[in-house]
Design a protein around this nucleic acid. Structure first.
Length: 297
DNA sequence: CTCCAGGGAGCCT
DNA sequence: AGGCTCCATGGA
């Protein structure tokens, strides 16, 4: 086990590990010593969060002065990448459209950063997210890990990472329905098959212009424009991607009615022009902010 | 009981 | 291209 700490004063802008990992943008991190995912800021400020990348187990937590990590390898560069610690939040916010709503969201969760999840896990977890509550998406990914993830020894403990494509491709639709994936089960199986066989992979997406990359991603089964935007934003670093989910549609109706163009592609374009080049950042702050306030007036 | 959740596929015009 | 309808599941 190797350990280290990334000083907060080496990061451009604020850092909030809890807001980053519990804002519903990633389903590939979990708390090893909490039985469930905690929502809406319940005492996770100094908790350890765990994930697996390739053959390596990695944990992070935030202290007053650093992002501490411990892992099966020297993980400092990986932590910076996965948590978006090299994103210059000062510059991003400066270049972003400001109004009462966006300001409130940014102020509420200053330090929330866009994650860079591994491609396949991000793809599958957002296929699972269709018509599903955020809290339950975590449970689905946990069952996939336990059933199909490769076991890794971590300091004497057995940890299961997210399944490899061939492991999920080998599952049957019924196997995945038994894990309570519902009608998403065949989508996950067929998409895993496409990645495992090389029919369509990360290499076909990465590096392409944003709108073309989104179109390519919809070639996967169970992936439409919205899920494609999630993968582009939360895995591949397309910070202009704005997933238009039910929350964003409501926000557009209430606050940016001129952006509603009647279809996804045109509304997305108008909303991105409204918010600026880092529209995805603002989208994620808004999503977390609006969802956290869903029980208020 | 009904309604709905970070939508998308299949089928119809 | 754009508009239905159906799809599992469980909590409110």
């Amino acid at each position: 086990m190797e350990r280290g700490a990334i000083p907060l004063d080496s990061v451009p802008g604020a850092v909030d590990v809890q807001a980053t990992l519990e804002s519903g943008q990633t389903y590939l991190w979990w708390r090893p010593d909490g039985d469930t995912y905690q929502t809406d800021g319940l005492s996770g400020g100094d908790a350890w969060y765990r994930t697996v990348v390739g053959d390596d187990v990695l944990e992070v937590r935030q202290s007053e002065t650093a992002v501490e990590w411990r892992a099966t390898t020297d993980a400092a560069p990986l932590v910076r990448e996965l948590l978006g610690l090299d994103d210059d939040l000062h510059e991003i916010r400066r270049a972003t459209h400001t109004d009462d709503l966006t300001s409130a969201a940014w102020d509420a969760y200053d330090g929330l950063r866009i994650v860079r999840d591994p491609f396949f896990g991000c793809l599958v977890s957002f296929i699972c997210s269709a018509q599903m509550r955020v809290e339950r998406i975590f449970g689905m990914q946990e069952r996939l890990r336990r059933e199909y993830g490769t076991p890794i020894d971590f300091d004497g403990e057995t940890v299961h990472g997210f399944p490899e494509p061939d492991a999920l491709a080998a599952a049957t639709e019924q196997d995945l329905r038994d894990l309570k994936l519902g009608y998403r089960a065949p989508y996950v199986q067929r998409t895993a098959e496409m990645v495992a066989s090389g029919e369509l992979t990360e290499a076909d997406i990465r590096g392409r212009a944003y709108e073309l990359a989104r179109e390519e991603l919809t070639g996967f089964v169970g992936v439409g424009d919205k899920v494609a935007d999630c993968v582009l934003l939360f895995s591949l670093g397309y910070l202009e991607a704005v997933p238009l989910d039910t929350w964003m549609q409501t926000a557009i109706e209430d606050h940016y009615p001129d952006c509603d163009q009647g279809n996804y592609a045109d509304t997305s374009r108008a909303f991105r022009e409204q918010l600026g080049p880092y529209a995805g950042y603002t989208q994620t702050y808004l999503f977390h902010f609006l969802r956290a306030g869903r029980n208020e007036a």
